[in-house]
């Protein structure tokens, strides 16, 4: 196994807890975290939401800077919208990308999840029903 540089991105709250719950998957690699709560992770990114989507531009700039420092081979996110921004920027810069939709989305992919599809090398849901409906990969869940 070649050690890879991985950047894991999530908003604070449930997204962040889910990302941490699955972090064992990245053992043996160089793992860097970015979070919207500056106290939780090494790298901080701002908030953006549907109503304040334009803040995504700021988040994109922050992600660009983090990407320049970390130079990750793989970028992984559990959402929400700031995580989507990270996945888009990462894919455009040539990193491999993994989107894991939040387990809170039991019936459909989140909006961020749907938008992430063209930019995610691996596109996962945590519910078999959502997988059947959308074609997202189901491999398990944090709960």
């Amino acid at each position: 196994m070649r050690s890879q540089r991985i950047l894991a991105v999530a908003s604070k709250g449930g997204h962040w807890r889910q990302l941490n719950a699955m972090a064992g998957a990245f053992d043996g690699h160089k793992l860097h975290f970015a979070c919207t709560d500056p106290e939780l992770a090494q790298y901080h990114i701002g908030e953006c939401s549907r109503s304040e989507w334009w803040r995504g531009v700021i988040v994109a700039c922050q992600v660009l800077r983090i990407m320049a420092v970390v130079r990750p081979h793989v970028v992984v996110s559990t959402g929400a919208l700031p995580g989507l921004v990270a996945i888009i920027v990462a894919r455009l810069l040539g990193a491999r990308t993994i989107w894991i939709d939040s387990i809170a989305n039991t019936e459909a992919m989140s909006l961020s999840g749907r938008l992430s599809r063209p930019f995610a090398n691996h596109w996962l849901t945590q519910w078999p029903e959502v997988s059947a409906r959308t074609g997202a990969t189901y491999a398990g869940a944090v709960l």
């Binding site: 719950a21 998957a25 992984v76 945590q126 944090v142």
Partner: peptide
């Protein structure tokens, strides 16, 4: 942990390679 989490972790690990 549990079988669901183990499955997810195993798959993610295979993606990282």
């Amino acid at each position: 942990s549990g079988p669901e989490l183990d499955g997810l972790v195993t798959t993610l690990r295979s993606y990282i390679g």
